[in-house]
Design a protein around this nucleic acid. Structure first.
Lengths: 228, 228
DNA sequence: CGCTGTCTTGAATTGGGTCAAGGGCCGTGG
DNA sequence: CCACGGCCCTTGACCCAATTCAAGACAGCG
């Protein structure tokens, strides 16, 4: 699975230290984590870990995007989170789990930091800033996942797409332009849609002033979009 | 909102102390929490807190069931978790949030312990056993919520109902009998279904040997049910 | 220029929501 | 003990959203 694996260099240490997971750690804890972190680069589509594998590490994404998903026994798979640079994942097993409860795959070329779960656990027991960071990350993920679940149950595909666009709209009114950070394929999965359904959702948003060209989305009237 | 509010008596302290959230706390932390806990009894259907309210406390359910849900702007509401006795909720805001991100309602007569969020936060910073308990609770909830989300996306209504039944089947094969702990109404919400859909799901499970009479579910062949 | 992979469009199907009516269960009161 | 009324649950009919399957458009790239 590893095509390259080593200590973090200066650039990587800086990236990691700015991460929301690490930025409030005590200097000692930060250094200990940075020293023990393994940096791994993987090509697109590699499996980072598979659900059911015994879990020895948590990860922090440095560059690229990663899919977290589970599969049904019929082979279909459902994404429940797309990780963006700076985020941690698999952190839910630092206390409790011994096996990964889901799979992770590189959606493009990624570079990530691998932190030994036991190290983090020990550190969290000794250093309250580490525990606090864990709690903050878990809370955040719990809230986001809950929101996703509720959105699925409450909103239709066009509404969810509109929500997604509005969340990353720089402005509150007037017009805006957004560039999707990844393939529509991935976006569809993260919204719980088949790719075709995403396509149709976009085209049904045309009437609300949304136009799509490749990865670039033009919104003519943000306020109007917010209504529906 | 409060119809009775006071310190925990011995019975209540015992209940709380056995809770998965509290059972591994240091004696000092446990006592401090028990001393500051407020015990509240509420009749069925009371609102415990409403989404958007400023959040000052987290809760631990002692008896009865509680719905956690959010509402869409059209007034429809979606449950995402049903709390059972012994569980904590609203714990996600101990670090981070200042307002409840969802609403909580008593599904029947409930009694619950109210813990001041700031107390818990301070305690967690000082006492690693408290932080650890928070981390464990958050991890657990994150995993369960993730599972729910994935189930929604991957499985049909009858499959989700079958899953629910199998999860609380004492045995692995042969026949089994389960008594639902609450109204079908509530079960429907927790599975993300309209009550009618739950009904239909049950009746479509008849062919798999599931028979329903009131709250009692008979499963003639657990192994057969597990297949579908 | 053709190729490969991504995206879109169309038609058929299905799962589940909604609305409206009927049935069972239980508590209350006669 | 039975009758009544309310509440929850079930059933049926209808409809809409979204998946699936299949085919075509489009882009980037050799």
């Amino acid at each position: 699975m590893l095509d390259r694996s080593n200590r973090a260099n200066n650039r990587e240490r800086n990236l990691l230290a700015k991460t929301s997971f690490m930025k409030h750690l005590s200097p000692a804890a930060l250094e200990s984590l940075l020293d023990s972190a393994q940096i791994i680069s993987l090509p697109a589509r590699s499996i980072i870990f598979r659900e059911g594998e015994s879990a020895t590490a948590i990860y922090c994404l440095l560059a690229g995007y990663a899919r977290l998903y589970r599969m049904g026994k019929d082979g279909r798979q459902a994404d429940f989170r797309i990780c963006t640079p700076g985020e941690v994942f698999a952190e839910c097993l630092v206390f409790g789990g011994t096996h990964y409860p889901y799979s992770a795959q590189a959606a493009e070329n990624v570079s990530l930091a691998r932190l030994d779960a036991k190290d983090v656990r020990d550190l969290a027991e000794r250093d309250p800033t580490v525990a606090k960071a864990m709690i903050a990350a878990l809370s955040e993920h719990l809230i986001v996942t809950t929101e996703t679940l509720v959105n699925d149950r409450l909103h239709t595909a066009p509404q969810r797409v509109a929500d997604y666009l509005l969340e990353r709209c720089p402005v509150d009114s007037g017009s805006a332009s957004i560039r999707l950070p990844f393939q529509k394929n991935l976006l569809a999965g993260m919204l719980g849609l088949a790719p075709e359904a995403l396509s149709r959702a976009f085209s049904s948003l045309k009437r609300a002033g949304v136009s799509v060209r490749g990865r670039v989305i033009q919104i003519s009237d943000v306020k109007a979009l917010r209504e529906m």
